[in-house]
Amino acid sequence: MKKLLATTGLALLSLTAAAQAEGKLSIYHWFEYIPQELLDKFSEEYDVEVTMDTFDSNEALLAALKAGKLGSYDVAVPGDYMVKILNSEGMLDTFEASELSNFGNIQDQWVDVAFDPGRKSSIPYQWGSTSFSVNRDVFDGSIDSLSVIFDPPEELKGKINVLDTAGETLTLASLYLGIPQCTSDRDQLKELNALVQKAKASWASFGSDVAKDVLVSGDAAAGMIWSGFSAKARAEGANIEYAFPKEGMIVWMDNVVLLKDAPNRDNALKFMNFLLEPENAAAVTNYAQYTAGVKGADEFLDPEVKNSPESNPPADQNGVFVEACPEEVQVLYDAIWTNLKK
């Protein structure tokens, strides 16, 4: 009996093991960001079995890699400042531009970027902005200021969802206050601390992966959100408007990076090259509704995605990238964040 059970168990284990094909690719990706059809297409074209795990913040990606996941993924999709951090942590592998036949498809302004000069370990994926959206059924006033989130009008109090990431939330708060990022000025930090503490009383929840759903379901009437995610919420029927605040908003670029100790380095490069095909980059854009960093992707875009109000800010809109702070400053921001969620 025992023997029988043991054999069955072993057989079952090997069954799941056998389900994995020869060529593999293991992706660590933001959630709800890449269409399954595109992964299937890659899978078919290159006869590679693709597995994907998802994360919901740049920090969660870093934490997972730190806690032993490095070496099990081939590629990941960190945002700009996280590329820099991963690189400084020695978590990235490098490649030569010649290893990617489509390297030339990268839009010129995204080739030599500050967070990865010359694109040694990364390729551009999508870029967009972080701001907030408001349900117009609930509030029809002006939403041109971050005060909607940090000093909300009466109608929105207790109905706001905030992204559950220290980086973006505190950066937007800094923009609202007009203080620089990564500041070590005590008064400014105290001011920042006081602001978010006070604003928290008006917030309903913290959540990044829920950011779209709370707006669609009506659980929240306003929320910090990424541009494309807001467009998707709108497409799903929420009567929301994405704001372009006068204090500025966060601009970011997500990048596909080649991870150190990637178990399938060749397939990883094939995948990166695949994503630099204009048609494939456009497929991601059509799904996630951000903007691709690849030449020629435009002609494959759905018109409503291309012309979406979320992806087309006014010409004079200010945007900043989130900065990676040095350790002695970062601990202060961490302290403010923990203090906020206590």
Partner: peptide, 10 residues
């Protein structure tokens, strides 16, 4: 959980 999976990393 936050110390191991989130932004705090302590």
């Amino acid at each position: 959980e936050e110390q191991f999976k989130g932004s705090a990393g302590n």
